[in-house]
Design a protein around this nucleic acid. Structure first.
Lengths: 367, 367
DNA sequence: TCAACAGATGCAATCGATTGCACAAAAATT
DNA sequence: AATTTTTGTGCAATCGATTGCATCTGTTGA
């Protein structure tokens, strides 16, 4: 019996070791583990683990020996194993509608920078503005046990059940840009109402009197609030809010062109427009140039978000700048802070970032 | 003794369960595991695992019961545990110099799309063009046991030891855009020599005769090859290669402005320039407009990479388009194929993607 | 009636790092 | 000299999913 047990124990120890050995020598395929180091130094894996984590319970000379051998053997810790044991992945997930949009990629860049400094990895996914894809991604990121999630909703998102995976388990969640008011969670936004107000007031200050607005889907807070701001500015200046001067669409380039045609076709057309983004503002500029309307003399335009092209078109585009990079930094900061301060019961913050009115040629006519 | 042992065994078994139970009920903090499902159905975890993986060894009725309960209990698999056991993470790493550059973010978008379809996650990092950060990232991605890596080198990268982590263990690696010729690995590039040739030939065809070139750091293949192409085109047309007409710098906006000033200050200045990127081409256009030089009549300009702004500046910028999105798709495809076809001994591919000459106003003067 | 076999399920080890507890040796205290 | 305290290590369980092998039940065929 005793022999049997011994035999088995040899089996347990030897056979996998032998296999590992073969793999190591023959294919160089496997990696060095703390057990390999332990065996080499005839000590236990616990000690190796503690030494490499600089645990005070291990003596300095032992630590030295272990570190030296670890380096020599080319040891690289297996983060997966560590993650499993620690129930922590040091990874945060980001979901954006589309990675290659300037605002989003700049935002991500900000997140990544803070995350890297703090020792976090970033897993990025794009929802392509599809609810179904967003759902899958959120599930997948949960299964990958990200420590927290930063997300801007897809255009289609109108229910939020998939986020309960996170909220139920108290996994930190930060929404940004496109958020839903009913969600109890942290949010990073800009004051879109103020954006609408500032943009419209600027046009009024420049002497435009019949101002149109091209809005995105107003189920999204960001477009809704901007429109409210636009209307508030008109009222404040005793200008009428005219139904036919407000157009709703998805703010693509084509949408911009369609909208400007539609506006100019009115029997009483506008003399300026506040566009929901720079893309549509740009397509209007192009169209107006082609048709010989003078900007800003006959027609004023202001966009939103300060795309890279806005500064360099002719005429250059007035717009409002959102601090994308800083928003990313802030989001990462907020999220990581919450991941690491586990104790205090959650209370949700909404951080409003400043926007900056950038006046360029497309709306600047001195009186 | 026996009581002692029993006591201990109770401790081992009960105490964690009890703790889990408390967490589950009180804080809803923990997750459902296959063991929870197993206990619920009074079967073993193995069976649950097999059922959820649709293993034929489990009978259909049992599978049904397990699936139903799993759904009801809100089971979400723990990918970490699975990864550890399977020695596979279904994750690929991407390293780019800067995420928020149009070419890179579009490339990433392409990678992400293919990865998502194939069931892979993507971890993204930016090197900020710093070798030291690139090293850290590569180590970190290795420790996270990514199944493969896609990378464009930082501007500083002049040694490649850190990639041995991957090559030694036969972990697939794809370089793109900025690659090093000495690396034995898969590569996705554009034919930069052809780029230089096409751009320069186009300027010549438009009647420009004294053509300058603004090049990036020629240690990088991409800039080197482009310059070679430029020189080849001149020679082919019996035009002299003039030392002082070739300027090397890092291709920032400022660099572009400095370069055009320097060129115009020559006693025999050029009448056209082929810029290493659109950014510098743009800053030249801006400068020339300001100083009253007519484009394209007096001076021709062509850039590279077709940035979003290139189409919309006045005059619009001639350039060459690299298929960023398609390159990303291709890279992901190549990488994943290699991850999954483990058997065939590696042979390295270099895939050259087509570029497209886009002629716009900045270089188009019909004769 | 019993061996041979197929089908369904369970046991226990495994992936690699971490950690509470136990324990031995050395140092400090009385 | 005897006892307590400190210091340094090791043992074995744990995280959750997977899987080779063993086991059990029921069926088929000789």
């Amino acid at each position: 019996m005793s022999v049997g047990l011994f035999g088995r124990s040899v089996n347990q120890v030897r056979s996998p070791r032998a296999e590992r050995f073969i793999r190591l020598i023959m294919e160089k395929k496997s990696s060095v583990t703390i057990h390999d180091i332990a065996r080499e130094l005839k000590i236990s894996a616990s000690t190796v683990s503690r030494a490499l984590n600089d645990n005070p319970r291990i003596s300095e000379p032992t630590k030295e020996r272990i570190r030296a051998i670890a380096l020599k053997m080319g040891y690289q810790p297996n983060t997966i194993a560590s993650n499993l044991r620690n129930q922590k992945t040091n990874t945060i997930g980001i979901v954006v509608p589309l990675i290659n949009r300037h605002f989003f990629s700049t935002f991500i860049s900000g997140v990544e920078e803070v995350a890297f400094e703090t020792g976090y990895n970033v897993i990025i996914s794009q929802s392509n503005d599809l609810l179904e894809k967003e759902r899958k991604i959120v599930h997948s990121l949960f299964s990958n046990r990200v420590d927290g999630l930063i997300i801007s909703l897809s255009m289609q998102t109108n229910e939020f059940e998939h986020f309960e995976l996170f909220t139920d388990k108290n996994i930190p969640l930060v929404f940004f840009d496109r958020v839903a008011p009913q969600l109890k969670a942290n949010k990073i936004i800009v004051d879109d109402y103020a954006v609408g107000l500032k943009a419209t007031q600027h046009l009024i200050d420049q002497g435009y009197r019949r101002i149109a607005h091209l809005a995105g889907p107003t189920v999204l807070n960001t477009y809704h609030d901007r429109m409210e701001g636009y209307m508030a500015a008109l009222r404040k200046n005793n200008l009428p809010v005219v139904e036919e001067l407000i157009i709703y669409n998805r703010l693509t380039r084509m949408d911009g062109q369609k909208a400007i045609k539609q506006l100019l076709a009115l029997k009483n057309p506008p003399d300026a427009v506040f566009c929901g983004n720079d893309t549509t503002a740009l397509s209007m500029v192009m169209y107006l140039k082609k048709t010989g309307v003078r900007i800003p003399e006959d027609f004023g335009i202001i966009g939103f978000s300060n795309e890279p092209f806005s500064e360099v078109v002719t005429p250059s585009l007035s717009t409002l700048k959102q601090p994308a990079f800083e928003m990313g930094e802030k989001a990462a900061d907020l999220l990581i802070r919450e991941i690491e301060d586990k104790h205090p019961p959650r209370e949700y913050q909404t951080i409003t970032m400043p926007t900056e009115l950038i006046v360029r040629e497309s709306s600047f006519r001195k009186r």
